[in-house]
């Protein structure tokens, strides 16, 4: 079910897509992963960490 939903959004069974500009060439999938890592890194720095209620 989930695979079908994801497949409906992104065709994972076709030819890979690339972003190409001059000397810069990267697959869309790799770029998505790198951007996701940067976003998670920023969130890990900025997001508040849950604390026990007893803590000050």
């Amino acid at each position: 079910m989930l695979a079908a939903l994801v497949g409906a959004v992104v065709n994972l069974d076709g030819r890979p897509r690339y972003i190409h500009s001059g000397w810069f060439l990267i697959s869309t999938a790799n770029l998505v992963v790198i951007v996701a890592m940067l976003a998670v890194f920023a969130l890990a720095i900025a997001a508040p960490f849950p604390r026990d209620r007893g803590e000050a």
Partner: peptide, 8 residues
């Protein structure tokens, strides 16, 4: 250590 960056 109570920070998300220490979870990874």
């Amino acid at each position: 250590v109570a920070s998300w960056i220490y979870v990874f």
